[in-house]
Design a protein around this nucleic acid. Structure first.
Length: 305
DNA sequence: TCGCAGGTAGAAC
DNA sequence: GTTCTACCTGCG
């Protein structure tokens, strides 16, 4: 069925948002298993003109599936209105032309977003997405070749590395120890991931985060191991749909200082404050567009020092 | 080969 | 509060 909301599906998929790795590309479709009311459905989306052609299989209601799809691709966000907003800001005016149809790619499962975002820190998009997929294949549930993301309860109990696995099992050689986090290429983030998972099973209830104000949610999520200000904002934006978040990293800092401060070097925390003040409820989208505008327009190469 | 990749934690000013 | 540094690991 066609969902009549404009989107550039491929751009949205490959944009490296830390909600989850891109869905599996099969011919001209992107596919993934999605839990709808706790029941698995295989979602299949492809570009049809400027819209999405959506199909799914599974024992779930059409209404619920469509609602889930709309959430994941943020289809009810009014892009035209946002583009007017961009055009009304001289510094941002040409961004919509470079990123037309780019939307948020929201995590249907916030916990997956937390772990993916922790994994993305000081890492490349390519590597963190591979790690996230490895984690799903090792400990998630399989449906028709697709994998769900494991629960916090599962991840808190997995082995950190081959040494630990060797000690705790009766496997006779560390080379054969593959069932551990470092095997997924997450490096030193393994400890953060496991500690974070434990936190969610003991002290922190992720479902509470969405009920909080942005400021409260930010302070709470900062307590998670491996989560600093940038990752916190990614989690709030991509995992909980707090559109006022402005995840600020080295690139956003370079772009903002180029566009707004005549190239003068300003600190990342100041950039975050500036973005939130300046863009309000559009901050998250502006951040997303800034990054991809810089990528696609060549600005990124220019700013590379 | 060596530094970077959409930063964070911990310690020192 | 702000600044400095070590850090897994695959890729160019």
């Amino acid at each position: 069925m066609i969902i009549r909301k404009p989107i550039d599906l491929e751009l949205t998929q490959i944009s490296g948002q830390t909600s989850q790795p891109p869905w599996k590309q099969v011919e001209d479709s992107f596919k993934q298993v999605v839990l709808v009311d706790g029941k698995p459905a295989i979602f299949d989306v492809k570009q049809s003109g400027e819209f999405i052609d959506f199909n799914f299989t599974g024992d779930v209601s059409k209404k619920e599936a469509v609602s889930k799809l709309k959430y994941i691709y943020d289809l009810d966000f009014d892009l035209d209105k946002f583009y007017k907003f961009l055009r009304n800001h001289a510094e941002l005016a040409e961004m919509s032309e470079f990123c037309n149809g780019l939307r948020l790619f929201l995590a249907p499962n916030p916990f997956e977003c937390v772990i993916s975002s922790i994994c993305s820190a000081n890492n490349s998009i390519k590597r963190w997405t591979k790690s996230a997929n490895d984690i799903k294949e090792k400990w998630g549930d399989e449906y028709e070749g697709f994998y769900t993301f494991p629960s916090a309860n599962t991840l808190k109990n997995v082995f950190l590395d081959d040494e630990e696995e060797f000690k705790m099992t009766n496997i006779d050689d560390t080379f054969k120890c593959k069932n551990n986090l470092k095997e997924c290429g997450v490096g030193y983030r393994a400890q953060y991931m496991r500690n974070a998972s434990e936190l969610f099973t003991l002290e922190m209830d992720l479902s509470e985060i969405s009920k909080m104000s942005y400021d409260e949610a930010f302070e709470s999520i900062l307590k998670v191991p491996g989560v600093g200000p940038k990752v916190a904002d990614c989690i709030l934006l991509y995992g909980f749909n707090f559109k006022e978040a402005f995840p600020s990293d080295v690139w956003i800092k370079r772009i903002v200082s180029y566009l707004y401060f005549d190239g003068k070097d300003i600190s990342v925390p100041k950039v975050r404050e500036f973005g939130m003040e300046e863009f309000g409820d559009n901050a998250g989208y502006v951040q997303l567009y800034m990054f991809h505008y810089a990528r696609r327009s060549g600005l990124m190469n220019k700013l590379k020092k």
